[in-house]
């Protein structure tokens, strides 16, 4: 067995340990075997015992130190129970509030988007009206050149305004979507982190 196999086996046997403890033990013993060097590594592994023996010793030691710090653990468990009870009692109030907040956020979003849609409609109207005006101007060339130029110029200005407005709207929509997705991912991340800490606490209790 080489040192990598030894460490892999040790890591498997330490699955019950909390992740941080396991990582610490693994890094300690891999450093140890590295330090022993090519000529001393076999003696070092023999000295440490088999991976299961070593794992058993580490687990026993960590169980003993867990027992010493039992008192604060109980208090933490109790406060968790209180939080759960509080949560259950708060549910009839908290749930409607959450729904209302969600509805408000949703309606604000819809309002913002309807403003965008109306602006976009205005942009389309400008472009369309401008095009019609340009066509009318082209038709008016044989009748009166100044009138024709007025219509064509005015129409082109309208088209330009409409196009730049629609580009501005496009940018605004894009920014809004990115902001909303950022907010949502922020909420999700925070929830995820909370869940993870609860998980590690639970594991530490085991």
């Amino acid at each position: 067995m080489n040192k990598y196999e030894y460490i892999t086996k040790l890591e498997k046997r330490l699955k019950k340990l909390p992740p941080a403890e396991r990582a610490n033990a693994i890094s300690y013993y891999s450093e140890y075997l590295e330090e022993a060097g090519p000529e001393g590594v076999d003696a070092a592994m023999a000295g440490l015992g088999s991976p299961s023996q070593l794992a058993a010793a580490i687990l026993a030691e960590s169980a003993a130190s867990e027992m010493e710090s039992e008192a604060p653990k109980v208090r933490r468990g109790l406060s968790a129970v209180w939080f759960a009870i509080l949560g259950i009692f708060a549910l009839p109030i908290a749930l409607p509030i959450a729904i209302a907040l969600f509805a408000v956020a949703f309606s604000v979003l819809i309002a913002i988007f309807s403003v965008y849609i109306s602006l976009f409609a205005a942009a389309i109207a400008l472009v369309g009206g401008g095009l019609v005006s340009v066509i009318a101007g082209l038709c008016a060339i044989p009748i009166s050149l100044p009138v024709a130029l007025f219509y064509i110029g005015g129409g082109l200005i309208c088209v330009a305004l409409g196009l730049s407005l629609s580009y501005g709207i496009y940018k605004l929509v894009w920014l809004t979507c990115r902001g909303v997705s950022k907010i949502f991912s922020g909420i999700r991340n925070r929830k995820g982190r909370k869940r993870q800490t609860v998980f590690t606490n639970k594991e530490a209790n085991v």
Binding site: Y29, Y32, A44, G47, L54, E61, S65
Partner: peptide, 9 residues
């Protein structure tokens, strides 16, 4: 033994 010190540390 080689494994004595890790828990102590």
């Amino acid at each position: 033994s080689e494994s004595t010190l890790y828990p102590v540390l």
